[in-house]
Amino acid sequence: MGRSQETFSKKEKEKKRQKKRQEKEKKREERKANSQGGSLESMMAYVDEYGNIVDTPPDPSQKEEIDPESISIGVPQKSEEDEDPTMTGRVEFFNHNKGFGFIKERDTKEKYFVHVNGLIDQIDEGDIVSFELEKGLKGMNAVRVTKIK
């Protein structure tokens, strides 16, 4: 007669699996017995005036009415009298063949790139010009450039 196909280690593994199943079933039954479940009110949560989560509803007498029109979202709009967008400066360099140059602003001494497409008047090096700034790919560009002197 041959030996049984079940070895000692197979029997031990099967016992462990059986034990795990029983423990899992026992835990499931405990959770089922201890779960409150119930109505919607028992599951509701509220936020008090300090931002804390509480289980009691807010007091209606403490309610404060807020006008939705008074809430501003984002950056406040600039008024026209805030600042003049035109700046003045001197043309430091301009290459007519390639169609670009640089303007040095009078107050801050910053240099701004200018392209021939941003010109209103014909300009040369050393001219005093007025211009506006516009965001470009590599920084601020001078646009709407007009010659003053």
Results as ranks from 00 to 15, higher is better:
Q36N: 09
L133H: 02
S79L: 14
K63M: 15
E110M: 12
S70W: 06
E92C: 04
N95H: 04
T108R: 06
L40A: 09
G2T: 06
D48A: 11
D84E: 11
E6Y: 04
D59M: 07
R144D: 07
E64A: 08
V116T: 12
Q5W: 07
I53G: 09
I120Q: 14
Q77I: 00
T7R: 06
D48L: 06
E23W: 07
D127P: 11
R28L: 07
H115S: 08
E110R: 15
K149C: 11
Y50R: 10
E49Q: 11
P57V: 03
I71G: 03
I103R: 01
A45S: 01
T86E: 07
K20R: 15
Q18R: 08
E14H: 15
Q22N: 15
G38W: 08
G126A: 05
S4R: 06
E105I: 00
R31K: 12
G38R: 10
I128Q: 15
E92V: 13
R31H: 02
T86S: 13
N52Q: 05
K78R: 10
E134N: 15
F113K: 00
T108M: 09
G139V: 08
E132L: 08
P57S: 07
K78M: 02
P60W: 01
R144G: 05
L133K: 07
K15S: 14
T88L: 05
F113P: 00
F102G: 00
L119Q: 06
V143S: 05
S79M: 15
V143W: 08
K27Q: 13
Q36F: 11
R17K: 08
K147M: 01
M44Q: 05
D107A: 08
F8R: 14
L133M: 01
P58N: 02
D84A: 03
R17C: 07
K78I: 08
S72C: 14
K19C: 02
F131H: 04
F100C: 07
D82M: 07
K19V: 04
Q62E: 02
Q5S: 13
D48I: 13
T56I: 15
D67E: 05
M44R: 09
K135F: 04
F100Q: 11
S72L: 05
T86L: 12
V54A: 01
S9K: 07
D127E: 11
K16G: 01
R3V: 04
R21H: 11
F8H: 10
E6A: 13
G126Q: 14
V75S: 06
Q77W: 01
E41T: 10
E49Y: 03
E110G: 06
T56G: 04
L40G: 04
K32T: 09
G37K: 09
E134D: 10
E125F: 06
N141C: 07
Q18L: 15
E29R: 04
N117Q: 15
M1A: 12
P57T: 05
I71S: 03
S42F: 00
I73T: 02
E83I: 00
E134W: 12
V75M: 02
K16E: 01
P85Q: 03
K27T: 12
